[in-house]
């Protein structure tokens, strides 16, 4: 699925002043490609991902998935569209403490008739976590939790995967392994991937990147 951001502007209030984060920002991500969003803290990586995910409407501009303008959809439809089309994993690898790894993966299909157990297990197996499927989040390592969160984002077979600082809590070795995994997913499943990180090593795996500078500066590397 192709993602296009058209003239996106976003600003926020801070200490009584309006700070512009983006101003008429354009961005295109072809179907099946993987793009890196880089930049220092406060440059707006997470905000941009939230705009793409449909959680934070831009002040101006539109977000297009193929020809679908996300923010022109009514709230309920947008939510449905998001659940079916976009996968999201954040920097905290937020897992529900009361659910096992497997159940946390299944959570993304909450309320469906089928329990998607086999598919969830397949993802965990693919990520090397089949033996940890019955473990609770607090029994897993940071990397394992991140992979579980990734599996949860992938279970609904999304067309686009958004990853927000997925390696922030991982060491270099585990970060590399994780980036390889993402690469693999992008390659095998042709999922469009947008990865926001300040981890410079990510560029070794995803050369096509956009560098977000603080206070709205945007540069392309």
């Amino acid at each position: 699925m192709k993602l296009v951001l058209n003239h996106i502007s976003k600003s926020f209030q801070s200490a009584g002043e309006t700070v512009a984060l983006f101003h008429h920002f354009d961005f295109t991500c072809p179907s099946g490609s993987a793009r890196l969003l880089t930049g220092p803290s406060g440059s707006g990586k997470t905000t941009l991902l939230r705009i793409i995910y449909g959680l934070e409407p831009p002040d101006e501009g539109e977000v297009l998935f193929d020809d679908v303008s996300l923010y022109h959809l009514p709230e309920a439809e947008r939510r449905q569209f998001r659940r079916k089309t976009i996968g999201f994993a954040d920097q905290d690898s937020s897992l529900l403490p009361q659910l096992t790894a497997l159940e946390n993966v299944q959570l993304s299909m909450l309320g469906e008739k089928d329990d998607y157990r086999a598919q969830a297990l397949a993802w965990l197996t693919e990520f090397g976590l089949e033996k940890r499927s019955g473990f609770f989040p607090q029994q897993l390592s940071g990397g394992e939790r991140q992979r579980v969160a990734l599996a949860r984002a992938l279970l609904p077979n999304p067309k686009i995967l958004l990853l927000d600082e997925p390696t922030s809590a991982l060491d270099m070795e585990r970060s590399d392994a994780f980036f390889k995994l993402i690469q693999q997913i992008n390659h095998d499943h042709h999922i469009t991937i947008i990865l926001a990180t300040h981890n410079q090593r990510a560029m070794d795996f995803f050369p096509d990147s956009v560098n977000l500078a603080p206070n709205g500066g945007v540069g392309k590397i």
Partner: peptide, 15 residues
């Protein structure tokens, strides 16, 4: 994953 399943888990976790 059903709501009931989630509820059961909550029941144990937040006992």
């Amino acid at each position: 994953m059903t709501f009931f399943h989630l509820f059961r888990r909550d029941l144990v976790f937040y006992r």
